[in-house]
């Protein structure tokens, strides 16, 4: 602690933290505002809202899992080429030759499954405590978009190993698109880039999986958290007879 105080008081420390010493609650709040990472959070919340019982921290857990997916996913990208000629071999190579390759692939896979679970449970928790009610209606809608994005991310990632599991799961999944009234075949062709799952499907799913969908998710998540912060101290408790 003493050392940390010395750091904070140094010329560099002051320029870095840009916040007063933490003497009063007010100073702590000022330090909170001055910190880029902390400013995702509200400064104050109701005591009951920070308890486990209230949220089960499922939103935070979903965010952590997303972070784990980005970190492990970037590592996998170094060793993976999205073409039917390379993809499968790259996964084998990753599992047998690359340092920690198998482990990182496992982390990515289990984080993905857990994220779908965590986001679903988060939705259920939000429902059961009525946190979607006014003035939070629209943040729930944003949440539904996040749920859809999470599912699409999982699904596009499922194809990338290019094994039998991937190929046929995606064939079943995208097969449903052909039943869209009137334009089903067009929709399916746009999704797959051809009449069946093939090389163009792989590159489409890859780009969606590593670029477009995560970028959209980050933006939508930023809005979600921003509204959560803005709404955190708004009154929800209606008179309960």
């Amino acid at each position: 602690m003493k050392v940390m105080d010395r750091v904070r008081h140094s010329m560099m420390g002051r320029s870095f933290f840009r916040a007063p010493d933490r003497v009063t609650t007010r100073d702590v709040a000022a330090g909170h505002w001055a910190n880029f990472f902390l400013h995702i959070y509200p400064v104050k919340m109701r005591r009951k809202e920070i308890s486990f019982r209230y949220s089960w921290y499922l939103g935070a857990i979903s965010t952590v899992l997303f972070g784990s997916l980005v970190a492990s996913g970037v590592y996998l990208m170094f060793f993976y080429v999205p073409s039917p000629a390379n993809a499968y071999g790259d996964i084998i190579n990753l599992e047998t030759q690359v340092a920690f390759g198998q482990y990182i692939r496992n982390v990515h896979r289990w984080s993905a499954h857990l994220m779908v679970l965590a986001v679903s449970f988060h939705m259920a928790r939000v429902f059961y405590r009525g946190a979607y009610k006014s003035p939070r209606e629209f943040n729930w809608v944003i949440g539904v978009v996040l749920l859809l994005l999470t599912l699409l991310l999982s699904f596009t990632g499922y194809l990338l190993p290019w094994d039998q599991l991937a190929y046929w799961a995606v064939t079943v999944g995208t097969g449903m698109a052909t039943y869209v009234p009137f334009i089903g075949d067009r929709v399916s062709e746009i999704l797959l880039g051809g009449p069946a799952v093939g090389a163009s499907t792989l590159i489409r799913f890859y780009v969606l999986h590593v670029a477009l969908l995560p970028a959209v998710l980050v933006v939508v998540l930023a809005v979600h958290l921003w509204r959560w912060r803005k709404d955190s101290m708004l009154d929800m408790e209606r008179s309960e007879p």
Binding site: Y88, Y103, P161, W162, L165, A169, V172
Partner: peptide
């Protein structure tokens, strides 16, 4: 991740439909 390895089957083969054909669990 330490206990269970992510699955990897044989290479994709458009001519060999597995039975059953399963979508990912969330579908």
């Amino acid at each position: 991740a330490l206990l269970f390895d992510a699955p990897l089957r044989e290479i994709a083969n458009p001519n060999l439909t597995p039975n059953p054909e399963k979508a990912p669990w969330y579908f």
